[in-house]
Every structure is written in C-alpha cells, then in structure tokens.
Amino acid sequence: MLDIDPKIFSISRPSLENYRAFIQRDMIVETYRSSAGQMASKGSLHRISINRTAHHRYAYRLGTGSFHKVNRAPFTLGFQPATIPLEVDGDEAEYISIFQSPKLYSNLINGDFNPEHLHGDGLSATTDPTTLQVALSLALAVEQADRTDPLLVEHLGMALVCCVVRLLGAGPVPSERPMTSENLKRVIDHIENLLGQADLSVGELASLAHMSPFHFSREFKKVAGVAPHRFILERRIQRARLYLADGRETLASIAYATGFSSQAHFSSVFRRLVGVTPKEYRHSIRL
C-alpha cells in the first residue's frame, strides 16, 4: 500500500485487497477493495471517494459531530474536505479514492469554494455519468501507470474538480476572458521550446496565458481545434518522426528526448496516433 506522508494526509483503514495507486503532481489516485471495519482520516488534501459496490452497512462522522447511518448505493461520491477529520464504519466495498490539493479548487474557481462549511449530507452525492467516466479514466491510469500520459491525467484531475463542485452545488465556475492570438502564440512557442520536458503541465501553460487551468484548456481547444494535452502529444510525435527518420537515436533516447515518461508510453502513443509502432515506422521509411 502507498505510504502517504502523514504530514500531508493521515489515514488508517481495514485491510485492503487489489490495492493500486498512482501519484502525479497534486493528486493521488487509488483503487482497492476494502474489508469491513473502521477508517479514520485527516489531512491537508481533499479526498474524493466513489464506492463501486454498494454498502449494506455504513456510518460516518465528519468533524466532531455524531455518527450518521446512511444508505450508500453504488457509485456514491463522498467528499472529505482538507483538515476535517472523517471516521467511517462500514462493510466491505470496492473503491476509487482520489486525493487532490485544495489549490486545484481555489485556482479553478478563484477561491470561492468552502466545502468545510457544507453540512455532512451536502458532501455526498450520486455520481453522474460524466463524473463517473472521469473517475474511471483516472482509475485506468493506475492500471497502466507506465503508459499513462501525465498531461491527460492532469486534465482529468481538473475535470474532476469541476464535476465535484457542480455535484456538491458549491458554486459556479466563474467566466473568464477568451484566448487571444498573442497568448496562443506565446503558449505554442513555449511548448515547442520545452517539448522534451516530461513535466510540462497544463497549469504551466495556463499561467502563461493568464488563465485558470480549466478555462485555458477549453479556450485552447476552441482556437487550436484540439485540447492542450492532445496538441502536445501530436507535436511530440511529429518531432519523434524526425528522430526516427534521422536514424541515429535509439527508441528509448527518442522517447525521453520528446518528453515521454518511458519507451513503452512513447510506443503506445505513437501506435495510437500513427497506426504503426516506432520500429515499424522507422523500417518503412528506410525501404
């Protein structure tokens, strides 16, 4: 099981089966089956939990209040605000659990999100299809860690923030100004200059455009025709084609030179976008 720094988040749980975890920037994603028993947690991260199977017995206490027994149907989303302790006593269930930094929420909705002021029942909601799809996509990142695109995971994390805020009725996402041609050029130039850096992030690009990350992603897609993570992937593949045509670098070297986290991730994306593997592509242009 993943060791989370107790200074960031402290959690004690019953025994877990089929546990897997994925960490990226301001987010941790877990998938597991929890045995029956008690859980206690508190930390500086927001925690979103979605039970993939129903609880027949479930009681919780948020903060210093009393325990509440509730029906927890499959795909119920629970939100534990940062700094607020949570205790749970329930039977076994399968879970997707996601930890996110509060700054992701404050950056997106300009600080107008105060979940610690919501009533306990207001921090739980039936998951809608869009939110569930985002959560399942994040869970898939856990299953395919060596082939997962960090930019896509970052985008999914921002999408989850919007879904959570909407489900909890905690306030609308404010409107922002549109993307200008000057900002777009600045962002694209930055991408081209730093294409080989694996840690290139949507948040970094959004700051160049003076926008919140989620609004930036929407505006970029409007003017560029594709989402930022897709644009960067396509530019990385185009540069990889040049390396493959040159023929002097190994596939592993090309993967790291074009910002992919591993050769496996590079090969997976290349085949998905081009239709053949990098090795097959290199062979075809030498015929």
Rank of each mutant, 00 (worst) to 15 (best):
L160R: 14
E192R: 14
V164C: 08
H190K: 12
H190L: 07
L118A: 14
V134G: 09
G122I: 00
S137P: 09
K103D: 11
S181I: 03
L184N: 03
E182K: 14
G169W: 08
G120P: 07
V165E: 00
I188C: 10
L108S: 05
N107G: 07
H155L: 04
R166Y: 07
D121K: 15
R177T: 09
G171S: 06
T131V: 06
T148S: 14
E176F: 09
R147E: 13
P129D: 12
M158S: 09
C163T: 02
M179E: 02
P129G: 06
T148L: 00
T131N: 07
L160I: 00
V142N: 05
E154D: 04
P150L: 05
P172S: 09
I109F: 11
E154W: 08
I96C: 06
V173E: 08
L156Q: 10
A159V: 02
V153D: 02
G171D: 07
I188W: 02
F113V: 01
M179R: 09
P129C: 10
I191A: 02
A159I: 00
E182W: 05
V161F: 12
F99P: 01
R147T: 03
T127Q: 13
G171T: 01
A135K: 04
P115D: 05
T126W: 09
Y95E: 10
G157Y: 05
F99A: 05
S106M: 03
S137F: 02
A135L: 12
G171Q: 10
V161G: 13
S124L: 12
I191T: 03
P178T: 02
A145V: 08
G120R: 11
I98N: 07
Y105S: 03
D112Y: 00
S137G: 11
M158W: 14
A170N: 10
V161A: 13
P178F: 00
G120H: 14
L140D: 13
T148C: 09
G120E: 14
I109A: 06
G169C: 06
G120N: 12
I98S: 07
Q133V: 00
M179C: 04
K185L: 13
L104S: 15
N107M: 12
V164G: 10
A170R: 09
P102R: 05
V173F: 02
I96H: 11
S97L: 10
L168P: 06
V173S: 11
T131P: 04
L160E: 11
V142H: 08
A159R: 13
C162A: 15
S181W: 08
S137T: 09
Q100L: 15
L118R: 14
H155G: 01
N110A: 12
L156W: 04
L156P: 02
L156R: 09
L167C: 13
I188D: 07
I96N: 11
E182Y: 08
T130I: 13
